[in-house]
Amino acid sequence: MKAKRRITAAAAAFVAAVNFNGCAYGPPPESIYDNINSDNGISVSDDSGIETMTGEDAIDSSDDFDPENNINEEVYGPPEDFGLESGE
């Protein structure tokens, strides 16, 4: 089982800049990280742009809440993916 993953702050800033919809705990869209490297002025924790959390870090202590983004998993359905939404 993979350790819980979180987009780093730097990667999140990049995500915001290009209007990607990343998520703290969800698998990050790979295409985001295709564009992140050490030459573009954005530092990330490793090649994948994700950091592994352990212990207390795993609990999201954020006070921010967006009811419209209260992403839910279904009872028996497949997990939500947080990839790029395919455009129309």
């Binding site: 350790a3 819980k4 959390m53 352990t54 212990g55 795993a58 998993e73 279904e74 028996y76």
Partner: peptide
Amino acid sequence: KRREGMPVLYGCE
């Protein structure tokens, strides 16, 4: 398990 950083979760119900 979540405090240990592992991706264990409950469902929507």
